[in-house]
């Protein structure tokens, strides 16, 4: 019953997002034909904004798996994303690989980073792990900007002129790109749902709750954290690859602490450890950024900060977390009212 309802909401959201480009075109008075042909207009513009949201959501959900589910606090998560983006960009541009091979390479890059992070897992915990991962990401950030790699990575400007596969060119095949990004996000989400309900994922939650107890029950917690890191690493790297395909430039700031903090903010807004919170949070985060920018220009980042603080204060469990808690309360209140009403009703004939 609960599963049905969960999927009903997901289904409704998916249907809405599929219909969305068409709805905007209709509202805008643009003909569907023109919209499908990729002519510019509101529909194309909002498709772009949503693509950015989908990519952010993929990045954030991979962070939620590490932090929200497994309890691993990483300050270097942006590196997972950035390495995916640079790998895809360099493979397409310098190595001239076709897209499928590029994606295989990206997946390998994701696994390799997870293995790198896992080296320190047995030795450091909590905030120390966060700082070590920040160290890894900072090294990557510096290396990728270095002069020596200029020809490959484009120095501190970033990687430009990545050849886009004809079928996925965001300039004139934006609708296709939109559906690909949407499909990838939904697939990742469904896979993550399954993962957290798998025996492996349940142990990851147990590790977040009390790693020592998990060990004493007989779980070699290292392997479970490694599994979470690998799944998260692959996902974030794929998100990065999508970013490289979509954006005109892959900037080295994508490996910065600020980028990791974005993922953290998104899941705080959406609800830590809820998975769907990453999707809702990514939308809230990007839309807030966009509209506040539009309304306030320069001072928008200050207002954005205030809004984040307010959100965390008033929705301490994030949008999804608070909603889940309230839902139970509301249901209880409803049931109480129902009972009171049926008790007050005269019994018998």
């Amino acid at each position: 019953m609960k599963i049905l309802r969960d999927h009903a909401i997901l289904g409704a959201v998916a249907v809405f997002l599929i219909a969305f480009p068409f709805l905007i075109a209709l509202l805008d008075g643009q003909s569907i034909g023109a919209m499908l042909a990729g002519q510019s207009g509101n529909s194309k513009f909002y498709q772009g904004l949503l693509i950015e949201i989908f990519i952010l959501a993929i990045f954030a959900i991979s962070y939620d798996l590490l932090f929200g589910i497994t309890g691993l606090l990483s300050f270097g998560h942006a590196m997972f994303f950035s390495v995916g983006a640079y790998t895809a960009g360099i493979a397409l541009k310098s190595l001239k690989l076709p897209l499928p091979e590029t994606l295989v390479l990206v997946v390998f890059a994701g696994v390799a980073q997870a293995l790198l992070f896992s080296i320190v897992l047995p030795r450091v915990k909590g905030i120390t792990f966060a700082l070590v991962t920040l160290g890894f990401a900072s090294v990557f950030h510096i290396v990728i900007m270095s002069h020596e790699l200029n020809d490959w990575a484009g120095g501190d400007v970033g990687l430009q002129n990545i050849p886009k596969p004809a079928l996925l060119d965001p300039a004139n095949q934006r609708l296709t790109f939109y559906f690909v990004a949407l499909a990838l996000m939904l697939l990742v989400y469904l896979f993550y749902r399954r993962f957290v309900d798998s025996p492996t994922g349940r142990v990851c939650s147990a590790i977040r709750e009390n790693e020592h107890r998990a060990q004493m029950l007989g779980f070699n917690t290292f392997y479970f954290k490694l599994a979470a890191l690998i799944v998260s690493g692959i996902t974030a790297a794929l998100g990065g690859a999508l970013h490289a395909l979509y954006q005109p430039i892959v900037s080295p700031t994508s490996a910065s602490l600020g980028y990791t903090v974005n993922a953290l903010l998104i899941i705080l807004i959406g609800g830590v450890g809820t998975l769907s919170g990453a999707l809702v949070g990514a939308a809230a985060f990007r839309l807030l950024q966009f509209y506040l920018d539009k309304l306030f220009g320069e001072s928008s980042s200050f207002i954005l900060g205030v809004v984040y603080v307010a959100l965390v204060l008033f929705l301490p469990y994030g949008i999804i977390g608070t909603w889940r808690a309230k839902k139970l309360e509301w249901r209880a209140a409803w049931q109480a009212r129902w009972r009171a009403w049926s008790a007050a009703r005269p019994r018998g004939k």
Binding site: R194, S198, P199, A214, G218
Partner: peptide, 30 residues
Amino acid sequence: NIFPNLTVLENVRLACQSLGKHNFRLFNHY
């Protein structure tokens, strides 16, 4: 020393799972 935010059943179920052979079945529901 328990898992505070998991249900009572899940606390015990995990203990039952620990010595089994399906700890790394990522694609099955628990």
